[in-house]
């Protein structure tokens, strides 16, 4: 019997910090096993060898912020059978989507003396705004154990598991004392699980870096922040307008307080 062909993996980067694709290289114990199970065909951060598509599995890191990248993602999608968007940037636009709330030209003027050389789009947009995404793995950064689970599921030909509960559930499982009880504002009730309730475990409130959970109720949380913790409207805007600023649930909530 002829050996089965190894699936071809490609990894792409758009506007981002590189952290989510780096998570693959941070799988120190598993990297060589992964390299044995898939052909790493295109991963510029790790290799000079760049094999053309089509690819069986594609991982995309970063958001779309330039006309060039908007064209590239179309080619990437055409060359990819199964496409996974990694992280806050690829799934909501990332921290750089703060431009979506203002005029990007003000941002360019603030950073660059010669704005005419800067090529950028008005908004930072998620991959799903441009092409079909087969699976979204959230987090800023993603959790590398979840990335391994996605890779394993792909290799076994089953859909990846996507837990939809909030950070609160994980936090309770950890046995933490609720930080809100101690007066720290915490986005845990509205934030997607996946980090292992890290911030509360380290005695601080969750700052929402895994994005909104399914069916969140941020308005109720804002009311609590404001009435029980005395949070100002400006700080409510900042709380929801960070790493997942452009995710609809968080976006609506920050806009509700941005008067």
């Amino acid at each position: 019997m002829a050996p089965k062909r190894k699936p071809k993996l490609s990894v792409w980067k758009f506007a981002s910090c590189d952290g989510c694709q780096l998570s693959l290289l941070d799988c120190e114990d598993e990297l060589l096993t992964i390299a044995g199970a898939v052909e790493i065909a295109y991963f510029v951060e790790a290799s000079r060898a760049m094999v053309k598509g089509p690819y069986d599995l594609t991982l995309v890191d970063g958001s779309i912020t330039t006309a060039h990248d908007a064209a590239v993602i179309q080619r990437v999608r055409r060359a990819s059978k199964y496409l996974v968007a990694l992280g806050a940037c690829a799934n909501s636009g990332g921290i750089q989507a703060l431009r979506n709330f203002t005029d990007v030209n003000d941002f360019i003027d603030a950073v660059y003396a010669k704005p005419q050389h800067i090529k950028t789009l008005k908004e930072s947009t998620p991959i799903a705004a441009h092409v079909k995404v087969d699976f979204a793995l959230n987090g800023c950064p993603i959790n590398k154990h979840q990335l391994l689970a996605v890779l394993s599921a792909f290799l076994q030909g089953r859909p990846p598991m996507a837990r939809s509960h909030s950070v609160c559930v994980d936090c309770k499982l950890q046995g933490n004392v609720c930080v809100m009880v101690m007066g720290a504002p915490c986005l845990g009730p509205v934030t997607h699980a996946g980090c292992g309730a890290l911030c509360p475990t380290y005695h601080r409130g969750c700052y929402g870096c895994y994005g909104p959970k399914e069916t969140p109720n941020p308005a109720a949380l804002s009311a609590w922040f404001s009435q029980r913790l005395g949070m100002s409207e400006a700080n409510l805007v900042r709380a929801f307008r960070a790493f997942y600023a452009n995710a609809p649930a968080f976006r609506q909530e920050s806009e509700a307080h941005d008067k």
Binding site: D69, Q96, V111, Y112
Partner: peptide
């Protein structure tokens, strides 16, 4: 040609 992300602005 890394797309600019404008940290200093936001």
């Amino acid at each position: 040609f890394e797309p600019p992300r404008f940290f200093e602005a936001f």
